[in-house]
Design a binder for these strands. Structure first.
Lengths: 191, 191
DNA sequence: AATGTGGTGTCAGTCACTGGCGCAACGGCC
DNA sequence: GGCCGTTGCGCCAGTGACTGACACCACATT
């Protein structure tokens, strides 16, 4: 039916999200998704390695985008400032598929197995950020810590933004990172 | 065959770990595990909700133990000091099953799906720690940050200890937390 | 026209996991 | 002693995620 393959892939994503929302993730079969997309179940698995991955399709692109942003940041910035810049840059990508983001977020929050996958993606993403920081000369453990804390903060900001997109994502990012900095002071014990 | 149920459960854990090591996680079936343990496949699933969970059996106990340790810590300590104390306390539990820990660690590192589950466990554990800190009056986001950083540090220490158990776990913990404190200074940008 | 390539349909198969039923071993309780 | 509720288990039948192999068709290259 479709010629390019990209069309089928896109229809599969659409159909999957719809069905997951209508009936829940566990109660929708891959056969149903394929049927709604007008292809065979086998074709579904040619495009996505498993049932969950449909919801995490952009992740690899996002990761590369962020890593490149970190690499291209100007000299002399502190690690967290570098990350904040990178997040603001690639935030534009997210703004394009906001309508996709909200149901996706709720779905992940409601489905344990999707939360697991989400955590895994977050981990590889943080690892990529840490690697990018390391290549700029940031010391290993500092890079890891900054990447983890930075990603967690980014995640927090995007979640808030998805819930109330009237304010800009950049606003949420600035706010969240400001919080992170003041928290950084408190972490220094022993006080 | 067994009367108590606890025996079968224990044999299942043993058999699973052995087979996972011998043939890899993906290439061992639940039927094989059950057979080696002298029970039916069905019984395997009566004891464990899925194939992965066999390797994470102690986690709930560990979580409750840690939460209680946090709750019982003396007044006037900084969050990370509370956590360090808690980790040292429940570290005794780990010292009991060191021989179980090393193959388990390698297996998880080598198997993506087990890494996912491991991350999920870490997340719920960190969440439990954060909740325990909150109940002591620690502010919400500080509690979350401390719990995440603290758990990551604990994890790091245990991994190192498993690799070289000649030094005590407490030593590794002291060292790792000292690093975390000095890093805490660096996180405070913007320098 | 011949040839190659990428996306797909079809079919058969494995394996994780679930529900339901019946049985047998225990532990109280009279 | 006999009665009975509970618990752990075997057995069977079924669903659904995922895989490998093969054939087909549309399209581009030459």
């Amino acid at each position: 039916m479709p010629r390019s393959g990209a069309e089928a892939r896109s229809r599969l994503k659409q159909a999957a999200l719809e069905l997951y929302r209508e009936n829940g993730f566990d109660k929708t079969t891959t056969a149903e998704i394929a049927a709604r997309a007008g292809v065979t179940e086998r074709t579904f698995f040619r495009h996505f390695p498993d049932k969950r991955e449909v919801l995490f399709d952009g992740e690899a692109d996002l990761r590369e985008d962020l890593a490149q942003s970190v690499a291209e940041a100007p000299e002399g910035l502190a690690p967290l400032e570098i990350l904040l810049r990178a997040f603001k840059n690639t935030g534009r990508i997210m703004e394009r598929n906001l309508p996709f983001a909200e149901p996706r977020r709720d779905l992940i929050a409601a489905t344990p197995t999707l939360r697991e996958r989400n955590l895994a993606k977050a981990a590889t993403l943080a690892e990529a950020l840490a690697e990018a920081l390391r290549e700029r000369g940031v010391e290993d453990r500092l890079a890891r810590l900054a990447a983890q804390a930075g990603w967690a903060t980014f995640h927090h900001a995007t979640q808030a933004w998805i819930s109330d997109p009237t304010r800009s994502l950049d606003d949420y990012l600035d706010e969240a990172f400001a919080d992170l900095r003041t928290l950084g002071a408190g972490v220094q014990l022993g006080q």
